[in-house]
Each structure stands twice: as structure tokens, then as C-alpha cells.
Amino acid sequence: MSASATTIPYKDKSKFYNELCSEASGIAEKEWFVNLANFAALLKQHLPKINWVGFYLAHNGELLLSSFQGLPACTRIALGKGVCGTAARSMESIIVPDVDQFPGHIVCDSASRSEIVLPLIKDGNLLGVLDIDSPVLARFTEEDRVGLQKLTEILVTKSQWPQSFT
């Protein structure tokens, strides 16, 4: 396993996400919990202008906080509540340009201004979500969603998930 200590240039987002996915593939292990920790750290290292990145995992009808980088966060989120719960329930990615305009937004870090949430889905089952916050309004674009979706696919396919998730 080898991860880059230098930052991948972000100017060309397509190239950035290709390099990020290549690095993620290189550090991926079979254990899902190891990958969650390393993928959160990888994103925090390379993705500019973010203040929080992490995973919430589906468990008994709610999302539970898992590996993350940033300030302490909400530990439980009901499905359908906030950005994470909404993305989890719909099983679709959500880009929120201004979190103050999202009905029911759950504030964990008051510095967060925009957010992107991507569901982790395997064989039609919700495993959890990847949540990324930024202190910058309208920080995330469709290009970010596409690139991050590729990253979540690496995480889902390279990890061996317990039966309780699938």
C-alpha cells in the first residue's frame, strides 16, 4: 500500500479524479472498515476547500457515523432527514450549493456552506453514504459528483462487506 503525501492538482477535474481513483485503488484492502478510514483520509488530503469528509453507515433504519476527517459530527441520522438521510432514502446523490437553503439541513459544523452526499449501494442495498462539506458556497459540481461516484464504486467493489449490510 502506498499513498501520495503530495496533493494531486485539482485544475483539471477529470484528470484529478482519475488520479484520485487510481490512488484509491492502490490503497484499497478487502476490509471495509480499513477502506472507510483510508478513503476519508485520502479525500481530506487531496480534495481542496473542504472542512469535513466521512461516512455514515446504514444500520437498523438509520445512518450511524463511521470513519471521518474533521470536527466531531452528528452520530445518528434518520433516513429521510437532512442531506445525508435524504440521499440515503432516495439512493441518489445530492449536491447542495447552499446548506442554509436545504429544508431540514442538520448542522454539525457551522462553518459548512455547501455539501455533497453520495450513497454507497451494493446489489441494490444501501450500505451508507459518503458526506463531504465545504466552507465555500456552491463548492461542488456535477464533475465532482461523477468523479466521487467512481471513487465510491471502488470502495464498494473492493471491500468485503458483512452480511448485515448486503
Rank of each mutant, 00 (worst) to 15 (best):
S66Q: 05
D133Y: 10
A78D: 15
A3Y: 12
Q149G: 07
R113F: 05
V83G: 01
S114Y: 03
K158N: 15
T7G: 02
L148M: 06
V99D: 01
T166P: 00
G80P: 03
L64D: 08
T75R: 14
G61T: 12
K150W: 02
T6V: 13
L126M: 11
C84S: 11
N38F: 09
L127D: 10
V34G: 00
V34F: 11
P48H: 11
Y10S: 04
V156F: 09
C84E: 06
A28T: 06
V136C: 00
G147W: 05
K150A: 12
I8R: 14
L118G: 01
V96I: 04
D109I: 14
S22P: 00
Q101H: 00
H46R: 02
E29V: 08
G124W: 09
P9G: 04
R76H: 15
S25H: 09
K122R: 15
G128I: 09
S159P: 13
K150I: 01
N35Y: 11
G128F: 09
M1K: 03
A138M: 02
A28Q: 06
C21I: 02
S112P: 04
S164T: 14
L43T: 04
V96L: 00
E153P: 11
S159T: 12
F16H: 03
D109A: 10
Q149H: 13
A28L: 08
D12N: 15
A24I: 07
T6S: 11
I77N: 01
L127V: 13
V107A: 05
D144S: 08
W161C: 14
F39E: 01
Q69A: 06
I132N: 02
G61V: 11
R139K: 13
S66K: 06
L148F: 08
I94Q: 01
S22A: 13
S134P: 05
D98R: 06
S25F: 04
G70T: 07
H59N: 15
A87I: 03
V156N: 07
V83L: 03
A3K: 14
E29A: 15
L57P: 06
A40V: 01
T7N: 04
N38S: 09
W161F: 12
V53T: 13
S22T: 14
S112D: 06
G82T: 01
E153R: 12
Q101D: 07
K158F: 13
Q101A: 14
F16T: 08
C108G: 11
A5T: 12
K44G: 03
T6I: 12
A73N: 15
L130A: 08
E19Q: 15
L57W: 11
S25L: 14
I50C: 13
I77H: 02
K158I: 01
A28F: 02
A138Q: 13
S159D: 10
A37P: 00
K150T: 07
T86F: 00
L79C: 04
V83I: 09
L64S: 10
V96W: 00
S14E: 11
N18P: 00
D12L: 14
R89V: 02
P135D: 10
N38I: 05
D12F: 10
R76L: 15
G82K: 02
